[in-house]
Simulated scan of single mutants.
Amino acid sequence: MDICFHYSDIEGQKNLLNSLTSLSIDYREMVIVCVGTDRVSGDSLGPMVGTFLLEECRYANVYGTLDKPVHAQNLDVTIERINHLHAEAFVIAIDACLGRAMNVEKITFARKPLKPGTGVSKTLPEVGHVNIQGIVNIAGFMPQMVIQNTRMNTIYNMAKVISGTLAQTVIAHKNIFPVYRLKQA
């Protein structure tokens, strides 16, 4: 894990923005995959991030919203579609996860693909070049019950922070790329 911060930590948000912006600069486009479902409170972080992001930045390439979630049943098809339509894109994957009590409400960023479903013992394909995860509740005994009994306030606050940071990243990427490309020419 490269970055870990409480969702209210402004410095953590700035570090995340700087990392995402510097990593995405070499790519023509950016795709954000927000994994989860709106049927389980603790697993709705991804779709909520996708919905908030599109409200803030309509031209972002977002897969996974509250209206059209990306979840275990359609993740394979979504990955194939992204690979076909956005072959050269920088892919950021977002998901909720369970963790230690002292880390609940923290946002993590790692420079590796997301492995969705591991907290609830599912084997799903990896997605993304990098991943952002929100630790929404405590891991351990009966993870299915824990994820279903997660506070929406936690999900909402984390989703606002992640989507806001991603919106700034998309805007920075759109504004930097033409200048960056001209410098290479």
Rank of each mutant, 00 (worst) to 15 (best):
D2C: 11
I3R: 07
Y7T: 00
S8I: 08
I10E: 15
I10K: 14
E11W: 00
Q13S: 14
Q13F: 08
N15A: 15
N15C: 08
N15T: 12
L17Y: 15
L17W: 12
D26L: 10
D26M: 08
R28C: 08
V35A: 00
T37F: 04
T37W: 01
D38E: 14
V40D: 04
D43S: 04
S44G: 00
S44T: 03
P47M: 05
P47Y: 06
P47W: 03
V49R: 02
V49S: 00
V49T: 01
G50D: 07
F52S: 03
L54F: 12
Y59C: 11
A60M: 06
V62C: 11
Y63F: 15
G64P: 03
V70G: 02
A72Q: 04
L75D: 01
T78N: 09
T78W: 05
T78E: 00
I79D: 01
R81Q: 15
I82V: 15
I82E: 01
N83L: 11
N83M: 11
H84K: 14
H84S: 13
A87D: 08
A89Q: 03
A89F: 04
F90L: 07
F90D: 05
V91I: 15
V91K: 06
I92T: 06
A93K: 07
D95F: 00
A96P: 09
C97W: 04
R100V: 08
I107F: 02
F109N: 04
L114M: 08
K115R: 12
P116H: 05
P116A: 06
G117W: 03
T118D: 10
G119A: 09
S121I: 02
S121K: 15
E126I: 01
E126R: 09
V127L: 09
N131W: 02
N131G: 01
Q133E: 13
Q144N: 12
V146T: 13
I147S: 02
M152L: 15
M152C: 03
T154K: 07
Y156K: 09
Y156V: 08
N157D: 13
M158A: 04
I162V: 14
I162A: 06
I162H: 02
S163P: 10
T165F: 06
L166W: 00
L166K: 00
L166V: 06
Q168W: 06
I171M: 11
I171D: 13
A172T: 11
H173I: 10
N175I: 11
V179F: 12
V179A: 13
K183M: 15
Q184N: 12
